[in-house]
Design a protein around this nucleic acid. Structure first.
Lengths: 235, 235, 235, 235
DNA sequence: AATGAATGAGAATTCATTCAT
DNA sequence: TATGAATGAATTCTCATTCAT
């Protein structure tokens, strides 16, 4: 029933824009649409679920936002809940994989790795749609136990391993003190997760805001933690 | 038919009966009930709103949990949304006031003040029902702009002032470096807010959990920050 | 890029090429299929309508059961209701014609004719798909007045004439008493119709069943009636 | 929100008219209605299910026919299917019990008993709403296995026992030949069930009809069977 | 002719709110 | 005040039918 979405969350998605002449015609619109629908629906669903919450989102609005009719949604997903599941598991997993690849490829010091990787990764995440998933999960887990499972298996656990691995590397190399790894991971991650959550809740309101830009905050936060665990804190 | 205008949750609600002058008159049991109804309804509403979210909570469930009938709820609150408003503004404000009083009374160093006050306050908050309000606000602000207002005026702003004041005190006294106060406030608060949010979302699931107890985390987190801003970090 | 229209499983679909003149050209297998489509659709529709009822049957299921796609169904029938009409009028009429032919050809006594013809005819009907039509008509006439017309003109009336004719023959020959012909016809037919209906309703359930095989029942029933109207009942 | 004026199909319902003075007021309308609702809904549901079939009946129509709103139906029955179940088990069981009581009380011959009891019972059944249940069951069993169970346990089995008992009584007393009891039961019952089914399907159409009145048919049918199994058939 | 993606009217069910008691 | 039966707008999901390919 649900079509396996099958395509990336990547950009350059959906050009209704006229193709440069000479380019072979795009695949027959019928077929092309079919291939893109699932992803378009997922985008629409994510946006609305994050903004309004699952229960307050109408399937018809998702469909309209994706540019299709009510019925079409059910050609690709069996239910609103199915859509919720897919939205969550599709949008973060790939990002985690990317992070792991980058960490594995890194040559320099743990401190350096963390400073660049964490800042980059979280900045990109924060600015992408994926950041909304954090708010969504936080808001809805208790209503859908299945989400908790998804979260731990596909996101929390691999994520902890990724960051914990970097901390451990620093301990082993003598850069960091003999801290409790897991505790540090949470100290690092929680404010950043919160930043994502914030962006889609209070941060999305007219109101004052927290008065500093995210990049500055992320950088400062990472520095703070690194200084906290470093064996040679810079003055 | 004009709805009773959503009176406050305060006791001594509208006794048209003249109190016997001077006599404290222990309230008759059903009188007492009557006086407590609003608060019981608020407790029930908070619990369910936090657990299921606003849209997914049924007014009937709130009423049942508070031990009254559906209709009764509407004698005290004009609508489900009214209940949401009240729930949010009632449960955190008092706690903030307490914190400010305690901070004002403190004599010793800023470091000392922060270490004790923040740990105590957040531990108590985390363990009380009030912690749920954080999750509730995070989940629902975007649907109810009014909540954002409540939040900033009654919670965020006074809270920032409380903590920012302590940081500033430390800077003035030379205990802390010349850091950006607001940035530090956020570094302090965000993980703690997140802890509250977490407790009512992923933390409420069966799943592994974050592996460390809250008190330890709070203490470690405050220490980390203090070390980060201190002019004389302990080794 | 127009997708090759996903042709049916059949090869060499659709030859626009002129057939070699003069050659009788045994119908290409796909030609045969094409010719049989309507009948296959009717079979599928009958089966599902009888089993689930008209309203609860999905056109897509009919199409699938007939081995074609949803759209194809509409190339042969204008609507689901059209299919219902056709299903009813096609499957019983032929059987009635057969019965009339056989009755006309018969030489012996009315008793003998009825004993053989009725038993044979109803056994064959009961075991064929046609038996389902009785259940279908019974279940759906009230929703489709048109069906009532079909029923009376094409089935009920000719059928009554067929059986009534045999009874009258027996009265005329002195084999039967001066009974009311129509009344006898109904006494004969109703249990047999009921047998068909039963086969497709309660008789199709797991449950105990009526404990006697149809042939025995039919035989016994006919005997009972014949004995009832006979001028010389066998002891 | 306009209150449904709540008039039932019943006459003299809802008397805004002044009650005759001195008459004790009818039970509080609120309460009285609550007590009658389930039965009114069942009546409405039976009528529509029998006429249109389960799938083609709209819950809203049932509600309207019962004089209530859509939502009210769900205060009494959990679903349309629940209504179907109840409709079937409530309307025939009582009639069977009545029949059994009467049979048990009978003193005279089996022949006499059957002639009077069967004719009476089936005439009453045929003319009551209960007759519709037969059509309903026949049309819907295959979609709802649960109905088959209900049918066998609450209707078919006790019914067979009731009639079979009478036949057996006649055999024991020498009135009837040594026939196969069950077979006779079916010969008796099937045309009568069919009569009920017929009344709510083809019999409800404008069309010619079967040309004889039910009472005559029932009488003739019973006579026919009795003559068929009697040891001393009257000429 | 055949396909199957898309549509949208329609049906079952839920739930905030009202109001007679 | 308190109750809970009743309401009906709103929401999810289905399915007959259409139509571009």
């Amino acid at each position: 029933m649900p079509r396996k979405p099958a395509l990336s969350a990547e950009p350059s998605e959906r050009s209704d824009l006229p193709e440069p002449a000479g380019t072979p015609a795009p695949p027959a619109s019928h077929q092309r649409r079919k291939a893109e629908r699932p992803s378009e629906l997922l985008d629409a669903a994510l946006q609305l679920f994050v903004e309004k919450g699952f229960a307050a989102t109408k399937t018809e609005d998702i469909a309209r936002l994706a540019g299709v009719s009510k019925g079409t949604l059910y050609l690709y997903y069996t239910s609103k809940e199915d859509l919720l599941r897919e939205v969550i598991s599709q949008r973060v997993s790939t990002r985690i994989a990317e992070g792991m690849a980058r960490a594995a490829a890194h040559q320099g010091s743990a401190t350096e790795l963390m400073r660049t990787l964490l800042v980059d990764w979280w900045m990109q995440t924060l600015e992408s749609d994926a950041s909304g998933v954090f708010k969504l999960v936080v808001s809805e887990v208790r209503n859908f136990p299945e989400i908790a499972e998804l979260w731990f298996n596909e996101i929390s656990q691999p994520g902890s391993q990724l960051i914990g691995g970097m901390v451990q590397r620093g301990i082993d190399s003598g850069e960091f003190r003999q801290v409790d790894v897991l505790s540090v991971v949470y100290s690092i991650v929680m404010p950043l997760v919160m930043l994502c959550v914030h962006r889609h809740s209070l941060g999305a309101c007219e109101c004052p805001g927290m008065g500093l830009d995210p990049q500055t905050f992320i950088r400062a936060h990472i520095d703070l933690v690194l200084r906290g665990i470093s064996t040679h804190p810079e003055p």
